[in-house]
Amino acid sequence: MTKLIQTIVDGLGVGSTYALLALGISLIFGVMHLVNFAHGELITVGAYTSYFFFLHGGSWWWMPVAILASAALASVLTELVAFRWVRNASPFTLLLTSFALERLSHALWQIFISSKQRTFRKPKWVFNQFELLGIKFEVMDLVTIGVTAATMVVTAIVFKRTLFGVAVRGAAEDFDAARLMGVRANRVISGAFAFAGLLAGVAACLILMRTPSAEPTLGSDWLLKAVIAAVIGGLGSFTGAVMGGLVLGLLETLTRAYLPDVATGWDKFAPAAVYILIAAFFVIRPDGIFKVSHAERV
């Protein structure tokens, strides 16, 4: 029982980071049908920003603000220099454009900083443990789940209550109709990128507090998981992105923890099993948990 609870807490911790990233990917997909493979680079931006500030006397008290700001800025910048010019291209072209950006980002960090890992301080309390109902938790587990939950609430409020949020949702459903309401295309897309950047910034904070280091390819692994999570949830669906992230996180930790019990000697294939399940899922539900339909007239 203890093991199960701890596994679930771990799963929710990883899953909520996936969810934050998946939410950003889903949001961008909603407004411009782009599966943004450059989204993970925002974590890298955040990491190097922290590295830079720690070199010059940074502190974790205000570092999250710097990470959020840099990630949001970088996100808006990618739209400005790249995605704006292919806005009406096919999803295939859009996707490859984001890939090109991801490559460029890797190259630039390698050229201007180094391909080697750069580390900095982590907050002291991160791995402190405490006991609750006889189960040991790390402080960071609690912080991760708490911060994610808070971010989700804020996101929900932004998209429910503010005009910006309503405009983004409207534009995701019918871009031209939103323009007819007086919504400016450039502004709503930039705004969506900024918001996705903020979400990636939150994810970056959670990742960097645990493993305070920067390297050029840091964002890529997270990104792939997040894309998978977003597609599992159903691209364009916000609830789906969150669900997809949590499901993926739980799936990973649960298979790692329990596959050895179920099938002895096969435990080394636990990570492979996760991906086989994912592949099977896409065969059964190609459009994800929440299908977002965009009607096409014949």
């Binding site: 599966v35 792939l224 998978i228 597609v231 691209l235 994912i278 896409f282 459009d287």
Partner: peptide
């Protein structure tokens, strides 16, 4: 849709 791409990634 995107499912084939995701399946190949999983593969």
């Amino acid at each position: 849709g995107l499912a084939p791409t995701m399946i190949t990634l999983a593969a």
